[in-house]
Design a protein around this nucleic acid. Structure first.
Ligand SMILES: NC(=O)c1ccc[n+]([C@@H]2O[C@H](COP(=O)([O-])OP(=O)(O)OC[C@H]3O[C@@H](n4cnc5c(N)ncnc54)[C@H](O)[C@@H]3O)[C@@H](O)[C@H]2O)c1
Ligand SMILES: NC(=O)c1ccc[n+]([C@@H]2O[C@H](COP(=O)([O-])OP(=O)(O)OC[C@H]3O[C@@H](n4cnc5c(N)ncnc54)[C@H](O)[C@@H]3O)[C@@H](O)[C@H]2O)c1
Lengths: 206, 206
DNA sequence: GTCACTTTGTGCCTGTCTTCACAAAGTCGT
DNA sequence: ACGACTTTGTGAAGACAGGCACAAAGTGAC
């Protein structure tokens, strides 16, 4: 169900355009998938479409949001306030989608206390408190690769069970913890692979 | 073959530890996959392992790098010098993996001319020149969603055929152009989904 | 009330990706 | 030189995802 967020984004865009109803064909093209796939995905949530008409935009958006667990706000903490951590802290897009950055954390005492995007950087030692008192559920790791496993362990020990990792390392976690790693170098390498394929194809048949 | 970058990263780490040879079992666990999958993946590249011994770390790293097209450096341009663009510009990890950021671009005249991470920001109008003269092959889009399609079109018109997109939109491009979109909100929403599943499971069987 | 038309929901098929399991191939000690 | 042992490479089986195509279900005009 990794495509639901894409559908939700397309629906939100349609709703702000004032569109009330949408067919699977239209929504699929807006989300960049095939209409058959879209219908199959939505059918797993239940029957929210009307045959001959399509889907009610607001209704479907609510259903998808509910399925994703976005009826509540999710508290997020960012660990590692370097270049990337600062950019993430300043990003408004998270709040728009129901993710509240409630804490910025770092290990380095020279960074702790600094105010970034209106929030004071705290020590990673505060993590258990954040989970206990503020319901922190999601941790974002933006430390260098060397510190990532340690940061992850600290998060997991404090009770966080969802982690978004930007460090190019494979993190080891207990089964109940979910880690998603976003590795930009990997993305670029995949693009390089395609670039090379294009170059080779062109050399053969120019 | 989206896993090759992961193998390469694991191999690089092993090489810098001084390891000369590695078994499929070890490498697979370092890369976070099963050993059967690793062997099957590697067998598509050719037979670079030695039965009873394993794989030569340096040799295999070279072969994978060659398969990915990483024997050459890939010139990269970043379009959109906001929070995220600046973080990317300052990131040293790209250069380490053979990606040279040769240009920082923005549409806003107040940003053009500014020096970020030692490079002067240029106008997007320079793009055709960068492709022609410097062999620019990969474009990174770090503009707000509204500007992303326009930025993408500019890149494609200039001749760029590999695009890494950080804006949460579906980009429309010709067939020969490859776009990879990294959407952090989507990642968080998937984590929220897991968080909710855990919460529900706990409510049922505490 | 009926009929033509639109669009969903879904059974089935096809191709791909993953795992299993084992023969083939090589190493190393003796 | 040989045999026990280790580890690769791969055929076969299984799981899964995606697409096709159509019946079912609803709308709306007359
Ligand atoms: N900067 C980018 O644009 C970019 C792009 C792609 C990937 N990344 C990855 O993101 C990560 C961060 O990159 P960066 O450029 O922001 O790094 P950085 O060196 O600028 O910042 C790292 C910060 O993390 C803190 N830190 C280190 N270990 C810690 C720990 N165990 N607990 C808490 N804080 C800790 C440091 O004190 C520092 O403030 C790296 O893994 C990098 O590979 C960054
Ligand atoms: N900041 C983050 O950490 C973060 C996190 C996740 C996703 N994103 C996404 O990344 C993108 C950039 O975010 P940001 O916070 O850096 O935005 P930003 O508003 O800080 O910066 C955007 C920059 O892009 C430039 N720009 C706009 N349209 C352009 C065009 N057509 N061509 C060239 N330049 C153009 C603007 O002049 C501005 O300098 C957004 O799409 C955002 O959704 C950012």
């Amino acid at each position: 169900m990794a495509r639901l967020p894409g559908y939700l984004r397309a629906l939100t865009a349609l709703a702000s355009d004032g569109t009330l109803s949408v067919s699977s064909e239209e929504l699929a093209s807006a989300a960049g998938v095939s209409s058959a796939m879209l219908r199959k995905d939505l059918s797993h949530l239940g029957s929210y479409g009307v045959r001959g008409v399509g889907y009610d935009v607001d209704r479907l958006a609510s259903e998808i949001a509910a399925a994703l667990g976005l009826t509540q706000d999710w508290p997020v903490a960012i660990v590692g306030m370097g270049n990337l951590g600062r950019a993430l802290a300043a990003y408004r897009g998270f709040a728009e989608r129901g993710f509240r950055v409630i804490a910025l954390l770092d290990r380095d005492e020279r960074v702790v206390g600094e105010v970034i995007a209106g929030t004071r950087v705290r020590s990673t030692a505060d993590l258990p408190d954040l989970v206990e008192r503020d319901g922190l559920a999601i941790g974002v790791i933006a430390t260098p690769p060397e510190g990532a496993q340690e940061a992850c362990d600290t998060l997991v020990d404090a009770g966080v069970r969802s982690v978004l990792n930007f460090a190019p390392v494979v993190l080891t976690v207990p089964d109940e913890v979910v880690v998603r790693t976003v590795d930009l170098s990997t993305e670029l390498q995949i693009l390089a692979f395609h670039g090379q394929r294009l170059a080779v194809a062109e050399a053969v048949a120019p």
